[in-house]
Design a protein around this nucleic acid. Structure first.
Length: 563
RNA sequence: GGCCCCGUAGCUCAGUGGAUAGAGCGUCGGUUUCCUAAACCGUGCGUCGCAGGUUCGAUUCCUGCCGGGGCCGCCA
């Protein structure tokens, strides 16, 4: 039983308010000495036509002899409760030790949830922006899975569009096969940047680019060959990053996959009389929703972004029968997803209401959007290499005898980058700052990992054993109750992170738990004393490692037992 | 011009319809014969952007304004 539930259950007998209302009102007092939990009596004031101060006093009087609370005090309008810490501590720890990793799991099946994430553009470097989508989406997938959904991770690759025509022009004019083979993304990106420089003085290039893309769409052999080659080389490079991040996808269907699936969509729109000609293009009018029209077809008949996403949405519904469908894409595309959803609703697909855009803020450089075309991109691979190097340096100076240094440096370096991203609220724009990722102190991934490693060392040295996990904790030890309260919040925190699609809620929780544990560690000698005492303390340590490891896993971060 | 996001400590950012608004970084100082100092402890005089409104109570909800960013037809 959770601490909140315990309290609610015992309050319910004397307060005539529905249990969920009581639970909602309960709060942690600003100062520990005031109590463990408090019930503000304002919500009763109107109903009872009495001052909240008086109500608190009355309730305190009625609870005076209750065995459920150690002590009850009325302070102003607050009813302050002192809980039976001994009993609750035991209950919380026992539950976590019994459930292990599955602590906080939801067992009811909530159906399939598709998650559109990562989606880098072929032939372009994997940028920091795509990192955000990848780690946020992956974490939401992990969290959804813990809470009873079957996540389907879809990498909607940007592998189609006019830019490939442009790239082919550039490659044919200035490209070098050997150079591309050697370093595909870098070379192709250089070509792409060069193209955008050259086009300024030679606008005819754009026509050539469009022609090449048209050839590609028409199945021209040479164009097709180049496209396949660019795509394969790009995927190989991306795979290195996905391996480092340890992210796997259930589907790699990119935009090109929907090539033959767009025509039926356009036809369907036509049949339903939803298409309208406007300035030569075909659009769906959305003025009833106070939105600008959705562009479905260019005047030359070619498809557009929205067309592809309509086809993709239908395909996903048909293939996966999703209960929910998420799109982890930058917030600058909010309008687009709103339009797609509304078009589907106009088509009569009520399941479009289960689709949700999960936007996130941009990565800025000098306060501005990064531009691929100008070559102003920060490459994720380079960033990861730097942080891994930094981790290696730290290990050399702090723990030179550590085994498997390379492996652990990778866990720490990659963890630092992922955590640095996931601790931000999704929607905040962030200034790209390599320094903040290279710092392993304070509110960082390595801080949480370090806390975990320290705790693991204690378990090893103290010879913790499941079968010996008896012993009674001294609940008056500093920070122990804070640890218990925090551990107990874990299932609810994961739930909230899913409900808000906000991994940062979980990141901050892990920082809080780590801090309390480090404070406890600093004040209380864990190994030593009687065997009973040591085992009781190690049970706390074990519970902390379970929650830290599982929490990090949900964020997509590895937890090293030593570092 | 319309719509969306953001505005809290020197910096980066949490937070909440309620009791004295918090963390990290940075500054200065301290802690190791003892479990990993990637840690811990101490050190903060904040108009919670501004102005109204709702409320017993607003930094939190609503409206307007100001400032920053984004999106708004043939890119994705």
């Amino acid at each position: 039983m959770t601490i909140q539930k315990y309290t609610v259950q015992h309050l319910e007998q004397i307060i005539d308010v529905p249990m969920d209302k009581i639970e909602e009102a309960l709060e942690v007092p600003p100062d520990r000495s005031l109590g463990d939990l408090a019930f503000p009596c304002f919500i009763l004031a109107k109903k009872l036509k009495t001052s909240p101060v008086q109500i608190a006093r009355t309730l305190a009087g009625r609870l005076k002899d209750s065995k459920s609370f150690e002590r009850v005090e009325a302070v102003g309008p607050y009813l302050n409760l002192f809980l039976p810490k001994q009993q609750l501590t035991e209950e919380v720890i026992t539950e976590i030790l019994r459930k292990g990793k599955s602590y906080g799991d939801e067992t009811v099946n909530k159906g399939t949830i598709t998650i559109d994430l990562s989606s880098p553009n072929i032939a372009k470097p994997f940028s920091m922006g795509h990192l955000r989508s990848t780690v946020i989406g992956n974490s939401i997938a992990n969290i959804a899975s813990k809470k009873g959904y079957q996540p389907i991770r879809i990498n909607h690759l940007g592998d189609w569009g006019t830019q490939f025509g442009k790239l082919m022009v550039a490659y044919n004019k200035w490209g070098d096969e050997a150079a591309v083979k050697k370093s595909p993304i870098k070379e192709l990106n250089t070509l792409y940047v060069k193209y955008h420089e050259e086009v300024k003085g030679n606008p005819d290039l754009d026509d050539e680019g469009r022609q090449w893309f048209k050839k590609l769409e028409d199945g021209d052999e040479e164009a097709r060959k180049l496209w396949t080659w660019f795509r394969e080389e790009s995927l190989k490079e991306f795979q290195k990053i996905y391996d480092l991040l340890d992210v796997q996808f259930d589907s790699m269907h990119g935009e090109a996959f929907y090539n033959d699936k767009m025509k039926p969509v356009v036809e369907e729109l036509n049949e339903r009389n939803l298409l309208k000609e406007s300035e030569g293009a075909m659009v769906v009018d959305l003025s009833e929703f106070e939105l600008p029209p959705a562009l479905i077809q260019k005047k030359d008949g070619a498809s557009l972004y929205a067309t592809r996403d309509l086809a993709a949405a239908q395909y996903r519904k048909a293939t996966y029968q999703f209960a929910r469908s998420l799109y982890v894409v930058g917030h600058e595309q909010s309008l687009h997803f709103e339009q797609v959803k509304k078009v589907l609703l106009k088509m009569g697909y009520t399941w479009a209401d289960d689709m949700e855009h999960i936007p996130f803020g941009m990565i800025l450089q000098d306060g501005k959007k990064m531009s691929t075309r100008k070559g102003k991109t920060v490459l994720l691979e380079e960033v990861l290499n730097q942080t891994i190097q930094q981790a290696k340096k730290s290990i050399e100076s702090k723990n030179p005898t550590l085994e498997k240094k390379e492996k652990i440096a990778e866990m720490v370096g990659v963890g630092a980058v992922i955590f640095n991203d996931l601790k931000q609220s999704r929607l905040n724009s962030v200034e790209f700052d390599i320094e903040s990722m290279l710092r392993f102190e304070g509110e960082t991934g390595p801080y949480v990992q370090y806390t975990y490693a320290r705790a693991c060392t204690l378990l090893a040295k103290g010879d913790w054993d499941v079968d010996k996990n008896s012993g009674t904790n001294d609940v008056e030890e500093p920070y122990l109750w804070e640890i218990i309260m925090t551990l107990e919040k874990f299932p609810g925190t994961v739930e909230r992170a899913l409900h808000e699609y906000e991994p940062s809620i979980l990141s901050r929780f892990l920082i809080e738990l780590s801090r309390y544990f480090n404070q406890y560690y600093g004040k209380v000698r864990i190994l030593g004393g009687t065997e009973e005492e040591q085992m009781a303390r190690l049970n706390i340590v074990k519970a902390v490692t379970i929650v830290l490891e599982e929490g990090l896993r949900l964020l997509g971060i590895k937890a090293p037992e030593k570092m």
